[in-house]
Design a protein around this nucleic acid. Structure first.
Length: 574
DNA sequence: GCCGTTTTCGGCCCGACTGTTTTCAGTCG
């Protein structure tokens, strides 16, 4: 089972416990365990087989036993047991806004509702409004929520949310009385998919700011608006929450609303250990607020380094900050060259000339041309003879580009047996080659792992592209022992791609830190086909930062000369 | 269900908003 699958089961256990009305802290223990496994950065199967599960905080006797059972047998008897009287679809009800475990229980006990369809029916014919604690408004709200859920399924890509978020933030900053404002929540942490957009503002007139927010152009509906906080549905169907606090609370509120939830709980526990209290209004010693103008000052009270938002996932960042051991994270401006660029020779939209012009204009000093190899016929992959003709054109274009270099590379296909689409004699003549899987996704994990490891063991492979093949919200990663693959990359000095393409963001940040720890190097690459793809770099850098990477871990932070030297040194060392 | 530099029992982060309520439960983040 994958970490995600195990986490999902633990999540379900927590939800069922809540619906059954059991100790909420017991449910929380399962939720917390789910988050831990999801963000573990290590294959849970390995953790279990090494007997290391019980070393992880939050895993006591019971959870260790149950997760071990789940991983080794594929089932958890306890979940079957507590699910026993309940219909399979009942947990999907929790995906509807304003429907939580208590209401699910009432709906099921009173009306036998066990699916979203049944909930919709009961809301449509008025039965829901008659239940205890319900009314006409709640019933209408649930119908609305079902429509919204069906349209968007709750999440969208970071790249799709960022535009509207920044637009609305600009509008909020224009509202009279707003002193400062910023994005918060998962969008600020640069999570790859976003549920809703959180924005924070400082003002002495919170109600006035909330009102103005709900009246902005583009607001479709206003599910909630109070004195300090409002929620709107913004076209096209994105939920935006605004919270307004006094300026003196801004730092604490910004920290609080950025999360993650687990990070916040950990920080609050730390505050309690100091005898303080931390909430969104400030850090308090009794009734005295410990002043903090910004988040840096807030962290300083704890005698710890300021934790960048991307790291706030409670995966060790608080411990590291207390020891003064946080990484000096890579920044977008550190990147000198763009990697994994397609041209119109295969399925890209831009000519070599245009690529040179566009990329140089953006301030980069080199790019790594990487069209498809011949096996990817649908993408007009290059035959051997077309490769040679492309090189001639590269030479011609290069002549007209001063202090700018085009690296001759290829995105060479990894065949089903792990061999490569070109023979070594051709590969050896490229400056660099990027190996990638584009077909045969359905094979077993053992086969896929062996296939990729064989490919990265080829001495002429320099980079492994999109290592898991996932497409966010569209396609799950293929089955593969990603840790074994990353180990092979580290052993063979093959750089691991972090695809900045918003639909990929692959390698997943959850594995980046672990890969770094075993000695892997990375490129933050674009997989660019269109001109707009050239502007996606920051999304990849976001993943690198979430994976604790520094400038020295990312090869395309090297200058063109250094990058060239690294490639040639590597090949000379063969 | 987890956890412990006072604790192996008794805590577990904390507040806003809504709707259905006469003082609060449920949901959300």
């Amino acid at each position: 089972m994958t970490n995600k699958e195990v986490a999902d089961i633990l999540e379900r256990v927590g939800q069922v416990l809540e619906i059954r009305g059991e100790n909420p802290f017991k449910a929380r223990a399962y939720y917390s365990a789910a988050r831990t496994i999801e963000n573990l950065g290590e294959d849970i199967n390995r953790t279990v087989s090494e007997g290391a599960l019980s070393d992880i905080p939050g895993f006591g006797e019971a959870l260790t036993k149950k997760v071990t059972e789940l991983v080794t047998t594929g089932r958890m008897g306890y979940l079957d047991e507590i699910m026993e009287p309940l219909p399979e679809g009942i947990l999907t009800l929790l995906k509807i806004p304003d429907v939580g475990p208590k209401k699910v229980r009432v709906f099921y006990d009173s009306l036998g509702i066990g699916s979203i369809d049944e909930l919709e029916e009961a809301a449509s014919d008025g039965r829901l409004a008659k239940l205890a604690g319900m009314g006409e408004k709640s019933q209408a709200g649930i119908l609305d929520g079902i429509r919204l859920y069906r349209r968007y399924q709750g999440r969208r890509l970071l790249s799709d949310a960022l535009g509207p978020a920044e637009h609305v933030l600009r509008e909020i900053k224009k509202i009279a009385g707003v002193k400062r404002a910023s994005l918060a929540g998962s969008i600020r942490r640069r999570l790859e998919t976003i549920g809703d957009i959180d924005i924070l503002a400082a003002s002495d007139d919170a109600p006035g700011v909330v009102r103005a927010f709900t009246e902005l152009d583009g607001v479709e509906r206003v599910p909630a608006a109070g004195d300090t906080k409002g929620t709107v549905i913004f076209a096209p169907g994105i939920q935006i929450d605004l919270r307004v606090v006094e300026d003196r609370s801004y730092a604490a509120a910004r920290h609080y609303f950025t999360g993650s939830k687990e990070h916040n709980i950990h920080m609050r526990r730390l505050a309690v250990e100091h005898g303080w209290k931390l909430n969104e209004y400030g850090l308090f010693d009794g009734d005295t607020m410990l002043p903090a103008r910004d988040e840096e000052a807030l962290f300083a009270h704890f005698v710890m380094e300021a934790i960048p938002p991307e790291l706030r996932e409670n995966t060790g960042e608080i411990e590291a900050a207390l020891r003064g051991k946080l990484p000096d994270l890579v920044e977008t401006k550190n990147v000198r060259g763009l990697v994994h660029i397609h041209s119109s020779w295969s399925d890209g939209k831009m000519s070599l000339q245009e690529l040179g012009r566009q990329i140089k204009r953006r301030g980069f000093t080199y790019f790594v041309l990487s069209d498809h190899s011949k096996a990817v016929t649908i993408a007009n992959g290059l035959t051997e003879s077309r490769v040679r003709r492309q090189w001639e054109e590269v030479a011609r274009v290069q002549e007209h580009l001063s202090r700018f270099r085009i690296f001759r590379s290829i995105e060479v296909d990894i065949m089903r047996d792990g061999s490569l689409d070109y023979d070594d004699s051709l590969l050896s003549q490229f400056d660099c080659s990027i190996a990638a899987v584009h077909s045969g996704f359905a094979m077993s994990s053992q086969e896929m792992t062996a296939r990729i490891i064989k490919a990265v063991s080829n001495p002429y492979v320099d980079i492994l592209a999109h290592p898991t093949g996932r497409l966010l919200l569209q396609r799950e990663p293929y089955a593969v022992d990603i840790e074994a693959v990353l180990q092979a990359c580290a052993d063979n000095d093959v750089a691991v791609e972090i695809s900045a393409h918003p639909l990929r963001l692959d390698l997943d940040w959850r594995y980046v830190k672990a890969a770094k720890d075993i000695g892997a190097k990375f490129v933050v690459s674009l997989d660019a086909h269109d001109p707009e793809d050239l502007d996606y770099l920051a999304f990849g850098v976001g993943v690198a930062r979430k994976g604790w990477l520094e400038k020295a871990d990312v090869l395309n932070c090297l200058t063109a000369q250094q990058f060239a030297k690294r490639l040639s040194d590597r090949r000379r060392g063969l």
